[in-house]
């Protein structure tokens, strides 16, 4: 008798969990599906070196998507990330022209990113202006500064060895960029899910007023997140500049939207309050595999963006629809 009840319990637990399966499960399922389809569709897909090459197309964006996810969980957003990458790349280009050492160039790249983030965060928190408004402004501001500083020039006097960040391999097929992305994922997973800082992100994202009344310094927290996003945009600038070997003012143009797509696809609520690093991590690979698979099939870029757009909407709609239907039955 007892055995039967136990069995029944585990069954009801199972149906229960089906209804509220985590977002990450759907993402993983779709990623596996896309991966299998691509492997059947193209004989070149499963080649490890091809796969390794494919990662270069998305890990730079993905490195910015990780901190941006935390910022969006906190009800803020940064649309200026691509422009920060450009400005920080320009700064590195000039530093290289002056003959600075590699370490210094990297520091300048990340430092400029942090300063841009600090500026965003300062304007947002000091004057209580919505982040979307401020960063639409700084998106043009930082990009415009890159154009003015650079004009028609191309900066490409990067020192010997600087190409390692964007082109080097740590071991076998594992590039430096890719390994750095894995380390960054672990770091942000830890920061968001295992620290006081991460807990405060969720508290602020869910109810900023109650968080403030609970003694959290909400403004300082948000400011810090803007700086972290800026810093990682600086890191992305180092990787991208190193990979391309040159800086133009149009560098990383339009990246902000693909970065935000990664975050939203990863299940982060665009209105704040919920989301996980694991979700963003899987979404990054989903987008990377789709882009790579379609590329191998010679699908034109415009069609590709249509597919990614459709995927974003359908993947976000699926769990909502499932929940709706399961509630009805």
């Amino acid at each position: 008798m007892q055995k039967i009840t136990a069995h029944k319990n585990s069954f009801s637990n199972f149906t229960f969990s089906l209804k509220k399966l985590p977002w990450e499960f759907f993402l993983l399922l779709i990623t596996a599906l896309v991966f299998t389809l691509s492997a059947y569709a193209s004989p070149y897909f499963l080649d490890v070196w091809n796969l390794s090459d494919a990662t270069f197309n998305f890990v730079e964006k993905a490195i910015v998507a990780l901190p941006l996810a935390m910022l969006i969980i906190c009800r803020d957003i940064d649309l200026s990330v691509a422009s920060i990458i450009a400005l920080s790349s320009v700064a590195m280009g000039f530093a290289a022209q002056y003959g600075f050492a590699i370490e210094l160039i990297v520091l300048i790249g990340i430092g400029v990113g942090m300063l841009c983030g600090l500026f965003n965060g300062w304007v947002v928190t000091r004057f209580d202006i919505p982040a979307i408004v401020v960063t639409i402004g700084t998106m043009s501001l930082f990009r415009g500064m890159s154009y003015i500083l650079l004009g028609d020039q191309v900066l490409k006097d990067y020192p010997e060895g600087f190409d390692y960040f964007g082109q080097g391999y740590v071991y076998w097929v594992f590039s430096f960029e890719f390994m750095l992305f894995l380390v960054a994922t672990l770091f942000f997973y830890f920061l968001l899910h295992k620290t006081n800082f991460g807990r405060r992100c969720y508290a602020i994202g869910n109810n900023p007023t109650a968080a403030f009344y609970s003694g959290i310094n909400v403004k300082r927290h948000r400011l810090m997140l803007f700086v972290i996003v800026g810093a990682l945009a600086g890191v992305a600038a180092v990787l991208l500049t190193s990979r391309l070997g040159s800086t133009r003012p149009t560098i990383a143009l339009g990246w902000e939207l693909s970065i935000i797509t990664m975050v939203v696809l990863g299940g982060v609520n665009i209105l704040g309050g919920s989301g996980t690093i694991a979700g963003v991590f899987i979404a990054v690979f989903l987008m990377g595999i789709v882009t790579f698979g379609l590329g191998l099939l010679n699908v034109p870029g415009i069609v590709m963006s249509i597919i990614i757009g459709g995927m974003l909407i359908s993947v976000i709609a699926t769990p909502v629809l499932i929940r709706k239907f399961s509630q009805r039955s």
């Binding site: 969720y202 508290a203 869910n206 109810n207 007023t209 109650a210 968080a211 009344y213 609970s214 309050g273 919920s274």
Partner: peptide, 9 residues
């Protein structure tokens, strides 16, 4: 609800 508790925690 708006100042005392964080409902989703």
């Amino acid at each position: 609800q708006s100042q005392g508790v964080v409902l989703d925690l």
